[in-house]
Amino acid sequence: MVTLGETMALMHSGTIGSLAHLPSVELAIGGAESNLAIGLSRLGVPTAWVGRVGDDPLGMRVVREIRGEGVEVHCAVDPQRPTGLMIKSRPTGATTRVDYYRSGSAASAIAPADLPEQLIERAELLHISGITPLLSASAHATVLTAVRRAVATGATVSLDVNHRSRLGSRDHLAELLGEILEHVDILIGGPEELALLAPEIDASAPSELLEALTRPGRQVVAKLGPDGAAALAEGRLHEAAGHVVDVVDTVGAGDAFVAGYLSAHLEGLGVPQQLERANACGALACTVPGDWEGAPRPHELAALLAGGSADPVSR
């Protein structure tokens, strides 16, 4: 599996409260596509991530962390632009705030030339998100180039809509994704995200959204959070219930969900099994702080699916 996108340094508070008053933050990394890549790698899928970072300590940390999780890293180092930064805080016990400092970042300058020769051509699956096209015109061109290369070799193309409102409007993202949607074999998103691709359908009707976006050979998947997920494939609607867990941090749960779904797809499992694994991966990701740290390994996944504790690690 190959994916591409921006991974940023992540500063996050370890306690609840406004960053206007907290005395310190902790440092990590995070990015939707690398979160996904790490999740797939932990599940045994050979995975490559393509990105760009600045020539700075934060960029070094991004590369080291992703590579340390067994992901094949293809990352240009930009001497002129900095590594992007996001800051995550919990103003209250029930809310999470994420602020981005990524304008003019190294990753925003990603270009088709950053795609290694023959990397996509060797992949079974190319995964993209709706985040990367919104970074810049060159990032959008890179996504288009990657998709065209994947289509030319018969690889599966998956898309997680993953709308980030601070990067661009719903209409703008719909316009950008419209150029590649016809090539997407696996389309994933929350109801509100899928609705931006089918504006005539109300987001409160997931099954109608799936029907509106289906095409021959395409799987359309709706992430429904605590309510689980639904997918339409080959004219059949599949639904799977979610898991009840003690939620610690929901950021990154959607990426873990997608990793579970795609890993099961690559193993040749049926849609019901893909949804089952996806829900379990998303649930387990919520039980651990961090954007990707809670992505499960096979034994943790097996424990939850067997009816064990949501946190199967004995202490």
Results as ranks from 00 to 15, higher is better:
residue 38 I to D: 11
residue 222 A to I: 10
residue 217 G to S: 02
residue 195 A to W: 14
residue 54 G to D: 14
residue 303 A to D: 03
residue 53 V to C: 13
residue 180 I to P: 08
residue 76 A to Q: 13
residue 19 L to I: 09
residue 302 A to V: 14
residue 247 V to T: 12
residue 303 A to V: 06
residue 76 A to S: 12
residue 28 A to W: 13
residue 124 E to W: 06
residue 172 H to M: 05
residue 37 A to D: 03
residue 289 P to W: 08
residue 42 R to D: 08
residue 198 A to N: 03
residue 166 R to K: 15
residue 249 D to F: 13
residue 216 P to T: 00
residue 42 R to I: 09
residue 248 V to W: 14
residue 95 T to Y: 11
residue 213 L to P: 02
residue 216 P to Q: 02
residue 57 P to D: 07
residue 214 T to M: 01
residue 198 A to D: 10
residue 96 T to D: 06
residue 228 G to P: 08
residue 41 S to Y: 14
residue 115 L to Q: 05
residue 47 T to Y: 03
residue 101 Y to T: 10
residue 215 R to S: 02
residue 231 A to M: 03
residue 241 A to W: 15
residue 211 E to C: 11
residue 303 A to Q: 04
residue 279 N to M: 08
residue 137 A to T: 10
residue 292 W to R: 05
residue 118 Q to E: 15
residue 193 E to C: 01
residue 309 S to T: 12
residue 264 A to S: 08
residue 4 L to R: 13
residue 174 A to V: 12
residue 292 W to H: 04
residue 116 P to I: 10
residue 289 P to F: 09
residue 121 E to H: 11
residue 218 R to G: 00
residue 208 E to L: 01
residue 25 V to E: 11
residue 162 N to K: 00
residue 89 S to N: 05
residue 128 I to E: 03
residue 102 R to Q: 11
residue 102 R to T: 07
residue 15 T to F: 13
residue 308 G to C: 06
residue 242 G to A: 06
residue 265 H to C: 02
residue 192 E to T: 13
residue 287 T to C: 09
residue 128 I to Y: 02
residue 304 L to R: 11
residue 309 S to I: 09
residue 116 P to F: 05
residue 74 H to G: 08
residue 15 T to V: 11
residue 251 V to G: 06
residue 65 E to T: 11
residue 248 V to M: 07
residue 68 G to S: 11
residue 27 L to R: 04
residue 98 V to R: 04
residue 307 G to Y: 04
residue 207 S to W: 12
residue 28 A to M: 15
residue 8 M to V: 09
residue 168 G to T: 13
residue 17 G to Q: 07
residue 72 E to K: 06
residue 108 S to W: 15
residue 91 P to K: 11
residue 258 V to N: 02
residue 223 K to C: 00
residue 311 D to W: 15
residue 102 R to K: 03
residue 26 E to I: 03
residue 187 L to V: 00
residue 176 L to G: 07
residue 218 R to M: 04
residue 36 L to H: 06
residue 126 L to D: 01
residue 151 V to G: 12
residue 141 A to N: 12
residue 153 T to A: 02
residue 241 A to Y: 15
residue 301 L to Q: 01
residue 68 G to N: 13
residue 158 S to V: 07
residue 264 A to V: 06
residue 276 E to W: 07
residue 107 A to C: 04
residue 296 P to H: 03
residue 163 H to P: 02
residue 147 V to D: 07
residue 154 G to F: 08
residue 122 R to T: 15
residue 143 V to S: 07
residue 165 S to N: 10
residue 48 A to G: 05
